[in-house]
């Protein structure tokens, strides 16, 4: 019986070998991966040099042949990465066993990483040149509604600065172009942003100044900081409080548009009572000028909350420009949207 068993096993093996070209290789060891952070703006150029190594490295070791032997020595395998010029700098972040999470923390040090990171240093200058090109293209906006999104690159840039700062800046994505538009440190972006929608803001400001002049009651007109155009005080707005009926109508208008654009993060299913309040500031033509997560503390420490918050902002941007009655801009210039995940999923 034992023999029969063995025979049976052999037969199966043979069949398998044919069928699935699988063997009993002692589990091929998986050497730990070397992981490095990649800056947002690919320094394709800088890396060009490494490209040369390609030429030098043309040795066709790639064929599976090479790897097999490698199996036994994982540690060594890990050591192999050195071939990559930059390894030294990266190891710290890389070594992290858990893929990303750990790798991310090191970001700070990343600044040092060889060629790649230098990006951080050159952020401003290089960055600017690159991004601009895309925008111009966008200008030739397409008639479609979505296309409309693009035309307003300026406002978005600004908005992004605000929104973005909370999330992305965190890691090292200090890369060039991004650095500029993402406003990792806020300041540069600020300047940029200001430049960008200067025009638009100016018109808004003009409008507000007029209103303000009319309303002008308590001495609350002080503009915040120098960037007053951006924050144009809304006191004026308060004066003309829309009737409840109108508010209800606006609410319906907003929800009808936004929910169609909100892709609910399915991974957040099963989390009870999750709601994310996001405050949007819109331009008179319904684009997002800025977005702000109200519960910043939770945004900073609850990854799932953060994902839902990001999905919320993405939804509104995806829907923009929102079509809302222009005459009541004052009423919808700032909107708080309460994205109620639980109800959305139960409905």
């Amino acid at each position: 019986m034992r023999r029969a068993l063995a025979v049976s096993a052999l037969l199966h093996l043979a069949a398998l070998a044919l069928l699935a070209r699988l063997g009993f290789t002692p589990a091929p060891p998986s050497p730990p991966l070397v992981v490095e952070l990649v800056a947002a703006v690919p320094e394709v150029e800088p890396e060009a040099p490494p490209a040369d190594p390609v030429a030098t490295a043309p040795r066709p070791p790639r064929e599976e042949a090479a790897p097999p032997p490698a199996p036994p020595a994982d540690e060594t395998a890990a050591a192999e990465p050195p071939p990559d010029p930059s390894p030294p700098a990266t190891p710290p972040p890389a070594e992290s066993p858990p893929p990303i999470p750990e790798a991310e923390p090191p970001p700070p040090p990343v600044s040092t990483p060889t060629a790649r990171t230098p990006a951080a240093a050159a952020p401003t200058p290089e960055a600017a040149p690159a991004p601009p090109p895309p925008r111009p293209h966008t200008a030739p906006a397409v008639p479609r509604r979505l296309a409309a999104l693009r035309p307003a690159p300026r406002p978005r840039a600004a908005a992004r600065a605000t929104v973005r700062s909370p999330s992305p800046p965190r890691p090292r994505p200090v890369r060039v172009a991004e650095a500029v538009r993402t406003a990792p440190d806020g300041v540069r972006a600020d300047v940029q942003a200001e430049d960008s929608f200067e025009t638009l803001l100016r018109s808004v400001e003009r409008l507000e100044r007029r209103e303000r002049a009319e309303e002008r009651r308590a001495g609350r007109g002080r503009d915040r900081e120098a960037g007053r155009p951006r924050t144009a005080p809304l006191e004026a707005v308060g004066a003309r409080r829309p009737a409840p009926v109108e508010l209800a109508r606006l609410q319906r208008l907003v929800e009808d548009q936004v929910y169609r654009c909100w892709t609910i993060p399915l991974a957040a299913r099963g989390i009870r009572g999750l709601r994310v309040l996001v405050r949007f500031e819109l331009t008179p033509d319904g684009r997002v000028r800025a977005a702000e997560i109200v519960d910043r503390a939770r945004y900073g420490k609850d990854p799932v909350f953060r994902i839902v918050a990001e999905s919320a902002i993405r939804a509104v941007r995806r829907c923009a420009p929102l079509r809302l009655p222009r005459e009541s801009y004052a009423a919808w210039r700032t909107i708080e949207m309460n994205f109620d995940l639980e109800r959305a999923l139960s409905g």
Binding site: P166, A183, A330
Partner: peptide, 27 residues
């Protein structure tokens, strides 16, 4: 990051948010 944002970009005028909308549907 948030501090940075706060420094460079003034916060939204929260006190004046007039419209509050519940988004209770989604895809």
């Amino acid at each position: 990051a948030l501090l940075g944002a706060g420094a460079g970009l003034s916060a939204l005028p929260r006190a004046f948010a007039q419209l509050r909308v519940d988004i209770t549907r989604g895809r």
